[in-house]
Amino acid sequence: MERVIYTLVWAAILQGLLLGMLYLLSNKHRSRANSILGFFILAFVFEAFTFVPVEDLWGYPTGGYFTLPEVKMLFPVLFLHYVLEKIGRAHHYLYFLKVHYFLAFAVIAITPLNIFLFVFRGETIYQLLDFQTVEGVFMTMQYYAFVLTLVGMALAIREIQNYKTLVKNTFSDLAMLQIRWLWQFVLGVSPIVLVWGLELGRIAFGGGGGSDVTSFTWLLIIIFIYFLSYKAYQQKTLWQQPPGPAGKYGNRKDPHAETDHKDYAALGQKLEGFMESTKIYNQHDLTLHELSKAVDISPRLISGCINRHFNNNFAEWVNGFRVDAARSKLEDPAFNHLSVEGIGSDSGFKSRSAMYAAFRKLTGHTPGYFRRE
């Protein structure tokens, strides 16, 4: 069993290392948000690496405080920075981020100092300072990092919620996809933070040495690395920056607005022609990604076209085709043998309430108003 666990650990370390380097070095995925995510993943990989029992390296002890780089201070800063960068709000927290990046790297710098002392003087900080002092500094850093994580999560949740409200008003489907991903990202980190807090609480109330809680924390870190890898494979559009709304939210001007308008006009004609010829809108659960696969155009372009050219969101744009199709049948006596609800279902509406809501919004009338006896 122990061999299986260590195999999973090393597999997660390798997978996380490759994924982190991908978002740091890949030109295809290059963006500031992805670079931050790459560093965040590599920090988790390093934390998972400490699960592997290595007592010393060439005589240098690796099991004590600050003998290996302490990256826990980086977690909350990278976490918050990634979320804020993803929604274009990082510049509003620039001072906060800079201060805590400085503190995080100051803590990490203790390890190179420790190595320097060991190489050139044959001693570590334990010989310069007493054990209680080193332990006190270490635990203070741990508690501060945990509190900072809670603050970072609270700020991230607030900003995601604010961004969700803005995106809802500006009709960006790709941005809504990004929001769902950010919520999953926050929820994925939450169990790790919870178990970490339990371990710190155990230590604060007099618990000493290692515990099963610590091992469980490492297990959650490994699961989180696998989760990130799965999402990277499943939905590649998550790593794109949302068009339009994120820039507006961050007060950034879109330099491609004029050229995009011309491109979207041609794309809009193509999308309308495809919808009319295939009647794909008759599918009750048609999604942006299903349409993207069917028409062989990226979700990003389709979403941008619907948002900017049609000034609409995906759901209401599709409902427009459904309303037109249903209205045409309602006005045709040849379809009088079908109920209003039956015509709605044949036209792609999932329920009676959805059909009536769409008709009232787009025509100002109920479906029955158009029925000809």
Rank of each mutant, 00 (worst) to 15 (best):
W196N: 06
T363V: 12
G348I: 03
L37C: 09
F321P: 11
S211M: 04
I297M: 09
T278V: 00
V9N: 12
V52A: 08
V295S: 08
E2M: 06
A90F: 11
F102M: 11
A354C: 03
L103S: 12
G197C: 03
V189N: 15
F335G: 14
W218V: 11
G63A: 02
A354T: 05
L330F: 08
D346L: 06
V189P: 11
V189H: 12
I160P: 04
S277I: 00
F96C: 09
Y23D: 05
N311L: 08
T214H: 14
G152L: 02
L219M: 15
F39M: 11
I36Q: 14
T111H: 05
Y101L: 02
P243Q: 07
L68N: 07
L117N: 10
G250V: 00
V195P: 15
R3Q: 06
P367N: 03
V213G: 08
W58T: 06
D324K: 09
L288D: 11
L267P: 01
S26A: 12
Y93D: 06
N162F: 05
K168Y: 10
A175D: 10
I306A: 05
P53M: 00
L301F: 14
M21L: 14
H91S: 09
H365N: 09
N313S: 06
W218H: 14
G247V: 02
F51R: 15
K270W: 08
L68A: 04
I115S: 01
H309E: 10
E373N: 00
L182I: 08
L362P: 10
A315M: 07
G16S: 02
D296V: 08
V45Y: 03
H92M: 12
W317E: 04
I108A: 07
A357Q: 05
P53H: 01
W317Y: 13
A354S: 11
R308W: 07
L117C: 02
S172A: 07
D173R: 01
T170P: 02
L228A: 05
V99D: 15
T149L: 14
V295I: 15
E55L: 10
R372D: 02
S298A: 12
E290Y: 02
L330P: 15
Y23S: 03
F40V: 07
M176S: 13
L330D: 06
D130V: 01
H92E: 14
T62N: 05
H337K: 04
I343K: 09
Y163D: 03
T259C: 13
H81V: 04
E331Q: 13
T170H: 04
M275W: 06
G88S: 15
L174H: 12
I13N: 14
W181T: 13
L238V: 02
H365R: 10
M139P: 01
D346Y: 04
G244P: 07
V323A: 09
D346P: 08
F370I: 02
K329I: 07
T217M: 15
V137P: 04
K350Y: 05
P69Y: 01
Q132L: 13
Y93G: 05
S35L: 12
Q132S: 14
L148I: 00
K270A: 04
R360D: 15
F40I: 10
G250F: 04
W196D: 10
